[in-house]
């Protein structure tokens, strides 16, 4: 096994309503490999199968057919409990709508994945503080989500995604709910994490502009990857606020 491969998808099919007259095939044999330290974006219009692919990559769902190896773990044969564990340890989710737990402080939110990993409260508090410091939220650790702005919420969510040092960060339209300047800041944060910490990031977006900044751009259409090209047009400070 190539140790630099973090994600290895082979001939992934996803069908819904299997065995009924409404049977629907969303993904038609996706092949995708992501290496450690890559910043990949998956672009596609609504209905192209982006979300379905993301669910499979994120181990939230299993493919109907095909093989999926995540950091050497066979996802297709894993049981529900094992999938929970894989999500906990291997994947850091960043959602469009932040999905912070309401009424819990930023600190508690960042501690959450570590709590499910069974890390002692002292250790996880320390690490959560570090992570929040890293994303520039060190002075807001006691604030609850409703006391934070959208950008601040997303930064807490990114800190949370990093909590268990996952193999990949899976960001689903992370700037989709933000104004352009805040979105820019979030993208800068991703680039910084990628560059300085070598974190593997998969960005799912419908914005070509954002995708251009990443190292590799995959375009999804009607359940197939129709193009794959190099990107990397990112240089800090040179970008105008991203349009959404």
């Amino acid at each position: 096994m190539n140790s630099s491969k973090v994600i290895d998808l082979r001939k992934i099919y996803k069908r819904f309503y299997v065995g009924t007259p409404n049977e629907l095939e969303i993904l038609h044999g996706i092949d995708l490999t992501v290496n450690r330290g890559e910043f990949v974006s998956i672009v596609g219009a609504s209905g192209s199968g982006k979300s379905t692919l993301m669910n499979i990559i994120g181990a939230l769902d299993r493919p109907t057919l095909g093989e999926y190896n995540l950091n050497g773990i066979d996802i297709c044969s894993a049981k529900d409990g094992e999938l929970s564990h894989i999500r906990n340890k291997q994947i850091g989710f960043v959602f469009q709508t932040y999905n912070l737990i309401p009424r819990n402080t930023a600190l508690k939110n960042v501690e959450l994945p570590m709590m499910y990993a069974g890390i002692s409260s002292h250790k996880r508090r320390k690490r959560a503080e570090e992570l929040l410091e890293m994303v520039g939220m060190g002075d807001r650790i006691k604030h609850t989500p409703d006391e934070l702005s959208g950008g601040q919420k997303q930064r807490v969510a990114i800190a949370r995604a990093l909590a268990n040092e996952p193999s990949i960060i899976l960001a689903d339209e992370p700037t989709g709910a933000l104004d352009s300047s805040t979105g820019r800041m979030i993208m800068d944060l991703f680039h910084k994490l990628h560059r300085e910490r070598g974190i593997t990031i998969i960005l799912i977006t419908h914005s070509n502009e954002l995708a251009e900044e990443t190292g590799r751009i995959l375009t999804l259409m009607d359940g197939r990857i129709i193009s794959e090209r190099r990107g990397g047009a990112y240089a800090e400070g040179q970008h105008t606020p991203c349009a959404q």
Binding site: G81, S84, R87, N88, P113, Y116
Partner: peptide
């Protein structure tokens, strides 16, 4: 529901 989904995405098992 959303919170439960988030927790599950973050690694909560059914038991949790």
């Amino acid at each position: 529901t959303r919170e439960i989904g988030t927790r599950k995405a973050l690694g909560a098992t059914n038991g949790n």
